[in-house]
Design a binder for these strands. Structure first.
Lengths: 124, 124, 124, 124
DNA sequence: GTGGTCTAGACCACA
DNA sequence: GTGGTCTAGACCACA
């Protein structure tokens, strides 16, 4: 896994796992890969992975069963809520930045559209 | 100035100054506030501000005049280019994230619109 | 059985069994449930239950009869002593904590009384 | 500092610091000892101390200023709330245990009184 | 100097 | 095997 060296690795791992859960790659109630396996998967240290998991445990997005492993929460509502939060955070971040660059709402939307189009072309 | 403690402060200061320049609060060729003044403005240490400025000098977005201080570049093209880069980076970041959360282009746009509306209401 | 994940499970099982014995749910001389049954009752692994029992055997609160199983001691004095010890330990723990929080004896008693009252109300 | 090996050290350190804050040994807004100093004081590893502090930071009982140190919150309400929580938790723990040992409310109170008296005598 | 992050490695409780 | 905890030690950003 490529890490951005501007933000803590444990934070990026957390984000990565959030995505796995929110997109259903990790289903509600499913067993997470072991800490050791995750460390290999994302090429980070076991403790760094553990730190990400510890935060997710305290948020109750995952639950731990001693000796058995960690499991995705079965509470689909809180997964849904997590998804909404991630979407909103991202939109808010982008909006504030572009707004601070003096773009109006309309300009933001049109920039977004042309960005999408340019991507489409690149992928054709 | 409020800092996000997840990313380096010097980086956030750099971003702040980029915005000042791109939005014309700091005009092309205009003298920058002194390092000391900036440190007070953004409530950071002089060393940290200096680090931000050093990087901007090497990018030639600002230029140093011995004994006189730092000045915004007079090259309006590179300012324009900086602006475009900031906009694109931000869009790209948001797009990748939301795409990774399985949102289609249409959903991203509609989420963005409802986000803008909810902001409008909050500010009325 | 709900476990506090801050203290070892075998320790909590031991405590649970102490309570059964001291309150007479398990009578002096009575046969203990089998290790397997206990493991089911408290939802823990057999090894973990065994560890709790091993310690209780060495304390002679329970005795093992080859091929027959484990039995509660018939020595009522030592059961009585165990009870006193549990009560005292608990009081001592609480007292030290609240004292360390600068509560006087009187305040501890009055806090205790209001705690009991608030429980009464909640249970009516 | 003597540690109870039944509960995590970081947890006991957290509790120790809670007490310092609640009893006013560490005043609201006061600078905490440095992480390194605390590690020496309580004879634990820097990381273990850091773990205790990280949790306290996320609870906003202390706040961190990059490069300057950690400081006790200035929000006296949340300190008061912490104190109440600590008292209640302790009372609840003791109450449940003694109740589970079949002691009535009256017996709990009288046991507590005799415990206090026996301590008085020991200290005279 | 001060806190924050990360790593390698060890040991323990539990299944 | 699996997670949780702890340590020693290193390096970085910031004041």
């Amino acid at each position: 896994m490529k890490f951005d060296d501007k933000v803590p690795i444990y934070f990026q791992i957390k984000n990565y796992l959030y995505h796995q859960i929110v997109t259903g790659i990790l289903q509600p109630g499913e067993k997470m890969p072991s800490v050791r396996q995750l460390a290999i998967d994302v090429t980070a240290n076991v403790n760094t992975v553990q730190r990400a998991l510890t935060e997710m445990l305290s948020e109750e997005i995952i639950v731990s069963q001693r000796g058995k492993g960690n499991f995705v929460t079965t509470d689909v509502d809180s997964i849904q809520q997590l998804r909404n939060q991630l979407v909103e955070e991202q939109l808010s971040l982008m909006y504030k930045e572009l707004h601070a660059l003096n773009l109006t709402d309309e300009e933001i939307l049109s920039e977004m559209k042309s960005y999408m189009e340019s991507r489409d072309e690149a992928h054709e």
